[in-house]
Amino acid sequence: MNEEEGGAPAGVTRRTAIGGTVAVGSALLLLDAERVEATVQSSPPPRAGATLAIRPIVNGRAAPVTIDPRTSLLDLLRERLGLTGAKKGCDHGQCGACTVHVDGRRVASCLTLAAKTDGREVTTIEGLAEGDALHPMQQAFIDHDALQCGYCTPGQIMAAVACVREGNATDRPTIREYMSGNICRCGAYAGIVAAIEDVAKKGRRV
């Protein structure tokens, strides 16, 4: 489905509209970040309810933000930074829809405390393409029809890229084993495995 569908004004997509709102919210919250940070540092150990200032590097850019320590990396990305590519499926680390990379390793962002990403590199599906050029794995998913509804796809692609980089895309059984943390209710597994095998076989840098 084209994102412009659904009655949005020309040039304004649902995603940019949501992203804009989130960005405004973040800016307001950032204003009081320094004050809160100073309070936290002057009275250790922090008590329940104290907020926390962190500075993850998200898709190559520093993203200083003040959070409630309960915040998951997934909620930070989606609700505060406007990066809605990573999806909330089960929110318990069982489905893989929230897969992102932290310091180059794939993780379940729903079970990662955002606090742990202070100073670390986070890569999401939004950080995979180079400008308008799709990442080879994104293109392979299109070429092999590796999705239906698309909800699990960002997590599948982030896991797939990691699978190749780890050297675990050597053959179909190994791909299946190392992709078993990503569930697809539509059952697009055949296409997913084919896409990963294709990228790995072509020896393309991912």
Binding site: G96, R106, V107, A108, L111, A159, E166, N168, Y178, G181
Partner: peptide
């Protein structure tokens, strides 16, 4: 045990 995502964490 688990998935590669969880084994990394």
């Amino acid at each position: 045990a688990a998935s590669q995502q969880l084994r990394n964490m």
